[in-house]
Computed example of a mutant assay.
Amino acid sequence: MVRKFNFIFLYLLLTLLLWFNMACNNSGQEPGVVALVNGSPIYLHQLEANYDFLHLEWGETLPPSVEHLQQEYGQILTNLILYKLVEQELAVRGLEVTDKELKAREEEVRQDYPPDEFEKILIEEYIDLNYWREQLRLRISWEKFIQEVLRPRVKIDFQEVQDYYQKNLSEFYLPERIKFLVFSSPDQGKIKKALISYKKKTEVEELRKKFPDMIIHEYFMRVDQLPMIWAGEIKKLKPGECSKIKNDKKSFYFLVVLKKEQASLLEPFQAYSIIEEKLIQEKIRRLFLEWVEDTLQKAEIKINVMLLKKKESDNVREEN
Rank of each mutant, 00 (worst) to 15 (best):
56 L>E: 00
58 W>Q: 03
194 A>P: 00
163 D>R: 14
176 E>F: 03
145 F>Y: 13
304 N>H: 12
39 G>V: 06
310 K>S: 09
167 K>T: 15
1 M>K: 12
16 L>R: 15
302 K>N: 03
155 K>T: 10
189 G>K: 08
134 E>L: 03
140 I>N: 06
153 R>F: 04
34 V>C: 03
267 E>T: 14
162 Q>I: 03
14 L>Y: 10
169 L>P: 08
198 Y>T: 09
177 R>F: 04
139 R>G: 06
192 K>W: 02
131 Y>M: 04
233 E>A: 08
157 D>E: 11
299 A>R: 14
241 E>I: 00
1 M>A: 15
256 V>N: 05
257 V>F: 11
314 D>E: 14
156 I>Q: 02
151 R>V: 03
292 V>L: 07
168 N>L: 12
133 R>W: 01
294 D>N: 14
257 V>T: 13
271 A>G: 09
214 M>S: 02
132 W>I: 00
319 E>Y: 00
185 S>Q: 04
31 P>R: 15
99 D>C: 00
109 V>E: 03
102 L>I: 01
216 I>A: 08
192 K>T: 01
122 L>G: 07
241 E>H: 04
271 A>F: 04
57 E>G: 02
195 L>R: 04
40 S>Q: 13
72 E>F: 07
40 S>L: 15
18 L>M: 13
53 F>Q: 08
310 K>W: 11
289 L>Q: 15
149 V>P: 02
151 R>A: 10
167 K>R: 15
109 V>R: 05
97 V>W: 05
207 L>C: 05
102 L>A: 01
290 E>P: 00
21 N>I: 05
91 A>V: 03
121 I>F: 13
280 I>M: 14
74 G>A: 06
206 E>F: 06
193 K>M: 01
79 N>Y: 12
207 L>R: 04
201 K>L: 05
170 S>Y: 06
54 L>M: 09
94 G>A: 02
